[in-house]
Amino acid sequence: MPATPHDQTFSGHVAIVTGAGSGIGRATAVAFAEAGAHVLGVGRRAEPLKETAAAHANIEFLATDVCADGAPVKVVGAAVERWGRLDHLVNNAGATAVMPMAETDKQTIVDLFALNVVAPSLLAREALPHLRRTSGTIVNLSSTYGHRPMAGGAHYAATKAAVEQMTRSWALELAADGVRVNAVAPGPTRTDVMLHAGLTPEAADDMYAYERDRIPTRRIAGAEEIAHWILRMADPAGRHATGQVITVDGGLELI
């Protein structure tokens, strides 16, 4: 659930949220802003980012491709220049791909790893000096398929498995610096990610219906529910939690 207007847990903090133009990224940017943070929403498309920024006065945006050369310097520099500090990096931008083994395509694999693994790594590297100064946090977005097999989506699952191992390894490496690193692994969540993966709206609805019937709680999560857990992992009150992957999937991984 989003923060209430009276919850100012992140007052004075600065957060970067990638993939902020829609879905979980937009919900996370709004939740941080409602909880008092200044937020830089990052994404490739300016128009959706403008809609995100219009949702709260504390949100500003930067339209850029996080995979582009120089993007980490540009993104982190923009936040620090605006507000003088950086407390939280949310690596939410990502892509999925439905690609059975028989249809394996080299460029699709390269693009998946570039966005889901390489880009967050380079953003984290650029953010690190600032996060050390604020005892800040990194929250990575994984998926239930980061630790469960996905028939027809092996390479997407592999990128998320990499994200989970990066999370644990960075947490161990940075603990002495006071920087916490955690991940949130959503289950099926109603966003436009399936449409970007090439599914038609009808096919996406069919997939959501199939997943809903498999989830023990019998429901698909909303983006705001995932944003709630992202903020909880960044919350200063949780300063003893690091290296954790929090699965939010209605119990799907239990079956």
Results as ranks from 00 to 15, higher is better:
Tyr210Gln: 13
Asp205Gly: 09
Val184Thr: 09
Val193His: 12
Pro201Gln: 00
Pro201Asn: 00
Ala183Asp: 09
Asp205Arg: 01
Val184Asn: 14
Ala204Gln: 13
Tyr208Leu: 10
His196Gln: 08
Glu211Arg: 12
Leu195Ala: 09
Ala209Lys: 12
Val193Thr: 12
Asn182Val: 10
Met207Trp: 13
Val184Glu: 13
Arg212Leu: 09
Glu202Tyr: 02
Ala185Phe: 13
Asp192Thr: 13
Tyr208His: 07
Val193Asn: 04
Met194Trp: 09
Leu195Glu: 05
Asp205Leu: 03
Thr189Asn: 13
Thr189Tyr: 07
Arg212Pro: 08
Glu202Pro: 00
Pro188Arg: 10
Glu202Arg: 02
Ala185Leu: 14
Met194Ser: 13
Tyr208Cys: 06
Asp206Thr: 14
Thr200Pro: 12
Ala209Trp: 06
Asp192Trp: 09
Asp206Trp: 00
Arg212Phe: 13
Tyr208Lys: 01
Asp192Glu: 09
Ala203His: 07
Gly198Gln: 02
Leu199Tyr: 05
Pro188Val: 08
Pro188Phe: 14
Tyr210Lys: 12
Val184His: 08
Tyr210Arg: 11
Thr189Phe: 12
Ala183Trp: 06
Met194Cys: 10
Arg190Ser: 13
Glu202Val: 03
Ala209Ile: 08
Gly198Asn: 04
Asp206Ser: 11
Ala209Tyr: 11
Asp192His: 03
Glu211Trp: 15
Ala183Asn: 11
Val193Ile: 15
Ala183His: 12
Val184Trp: 03
Leu199Ile: 00
Glu211Asp: 14
Asp205Pro: 00
Asn182Thr: 07
Thr200Leu: 09
Leu195Arg: 01
Asp192Asn: 11
Met194Gly: 15
Glu211Phe: 13
Asn182Met: 04
Pro188His: 03
Thr189Cys: 12
Arg212Lys: 14
Ala204Trp: 11
Ala203Leu: 10
Pro201Ile: 01
Glu211Asn: 11
Asp205Glu: 15
Pro188Gln: 13
Pro188Gly: 14
His196Pro: 05
Gly187Gln: 05
Val184Met: 10
Val193Gln: 14
Asn182Pro: 07
Ala197Thr: 04
Leu195Tyr: 03
Val184Arg: 01
Arg212Ile: 04
Pro201Tyr: 00
Val193Tyr: 06
Met207Asn: 04
Tyr208Ala: 01
Asp192Pro: 04
Asp205Lys: 04
Tyr210Leu: 09
Gly187Thr: 12
Asp206Phe: 05
Ala204Thr: 03
Leu195Pro: 08
Gly198Asp: 05
Met194Arg: 14
Ala197Lys: 07
Val184Pro: 08
Arg212Asn: 06
Ala204Val: 06
Ala204Pro: 06
Arg190Cys: 04
Asp192Lys: 12
Glu202Gly: 01
Met207Asp: 13
Asp192Met: 01
Ala197Ile: 06
Gly198Thr: 07
Gly187Ala: 11
Tyr208Asp: 03
Gly198Leu: 01
